[in-house]
C-alpha cells in the first residue's frame, strides 16, 4: 500500500497532503461502494456517470449534516427542558469558556475542509470536457424553445408549437454539449442527470454527459426567461448505441422535429 512509503517519510506538508489525499480516496471509495444502499434523501440518483457522482456528493453532505444538526438541536432541546426558570435566584454569570469556544470553531473548520476536498474532486469530474467525445450536440436556447443540432449527423430538432424536441443520446458514450442562447438567459436543466447549466447570451458553454441507463427523461428551462418560461420543456431519450444509430440514420434525411 501507498501508506507505507508515506509513513517512512519525515513529517512535512507534503506528507499531510498525501495522508489527506489517500484518506479521502479511501473514504470516498468506501462511500461509493456503500452509498448505493444508503438513503438518497429525496435526491435523484443521476442517470449519467457525472450526475451519479453529484448524487453521491449530495448524499455525503446530507449524511454529514445529521451530526451537525444534532450538535445544535440536542443541547438546545436539553436546555429547553432542563433550564426552565424556576425561581428568582440568579444563575451563575458565565461570560465565556475558551475551550468550548475553540471546539465549536475548530470542529466546523475541519468539517468544512473535508467537505471542500470532496467537492473539488466531484466538481472536477462533473465539469471535465472530453477531448474526443463520441458525439457532439449543439444546443441553442431561445424564447421559448430549444434547438438541438448534431453536427456530425446533420440532424436538427427544435421546438414547434406544443411539440417538445427530443435530445437523443447514446448510452455509455460521452456526448459533449455546446450550449448557447440567442436572446436572454436560459437554464438547460435535466433533473434526472442532476445537472443544469446556463445558456448565456455571449457565452458558449461546454459540458459532457455519459448516460448510464436507457430511458426517457424530462428536460426543462430552469432560469426565468419571460412569459412562457414554464413551458420551455424538452425530452431526453437515452438509447443503446445500436438504437441511437438507428434513430440517427432514420432522421438524418429529414432533419426536423419528428
Amino acid at each position: 500500500m501507498r501508506t507505507i512509503d508515506v509513513a517512512s517519510r519525515s513529517f512535512s506538508v507534503v506528507r499531510v497532503v498525501r495522508v489527506v489525499r489517500v484518506g479521502s480516496a479511501l473514504v470516498l471509495g468506501g462511500l461509493v461502494l456503500g452509498a448505493c444502499n444508503l438513503p438518497g434523501f429525496g435526491a435523484d440518483r443521476g442517470a449519467t456517470t457525472q450526475g451519479h457522482s453529484t448524487f453521491h456528493l449530495f448524499q455525503f453532505f446530507a449524511i454529514l449534516s445529521i451530526p451537525v444538526l444534532l450538535s445544535v438541536f440536542v443541547p438546545l432541546v436539553y436546555a429547553i427542558l432542563r433550564f426552565k426558570r424556576r425561581g428568582d435566584e440568579i444563575p451563575k454569570q458565565t461570560h465565556s469558556h475558551i475551550p468550548i469556544e475553540i471546539v465549536y470553531t475548530v470542529v466546523p473548520i475541519i468539517i468544512i475542509v473535508v467537505l471542500f476536498v470532496f467537492t473539488v474532486r466531484v466538481e472536477n469530474k462533473v465539469t471535465a470536457v472530453s477531448a474526443h467525445p463520441n458525439l457532439r450536440v449543439d444546443v441553442t436556447a431561445y424564447q421559448w424553445g430549444w434547438k438541438f443540432y448534431y453536427p456530425s449527423l446533420g440532424i436538427t430538432e427544435y421546438t414547434e408549437g406544443n411539440h417538445y424536441p427530443d435530445l437523443v443520446l447514446p448510452e455509455n458514450e460521452t456526448t459533449t454539449v455546446r450550449l448557447v442562447s440567442s436572446d436572454v438567459v436560459h437554464g438547460f436543466y435535466i433533473p434526472a442527470f442532476d445537472f443544469s447549466r446556463y445558456a448565456l447570451p455571449g457565452v458558449t458553454n461546454y459540458f459532457d454527459f455519459t448516460p448510464n441507463q436507457v430511458g426517457s427523461f424530462i428536460g426543462r428551462c430552469s432560469q426565468l426567461c419571460g412569459l412562457y418560461h414554464s413551458e420551455m420543456l424538452f425530452h431526453v431519450s437515452v438509447d443503446t448505441p445500436a438504437g441511437f444509430n438507428a434513430w440517427a440514420s432514420s432522421h438524418s434525411s429529414n432533419s426536423k422535429g419528428a
Binding site: 450526475g51 453529484t54 449530495f58 453532505f61 437554464g187 445537472f195 430552469s222
Partner: peptide, 12 residues
C-alpha cells in the same frame, strides 16, 4: 455552496 450540488439544485 458545493458547485456540483448547485448544478443539480440551482433555480429549483
Amino acid at each position: 455552496a458545493a458547485p456540483p450540488i448547485d448544478f443539480y439544485t440551482h433555480d429549483t
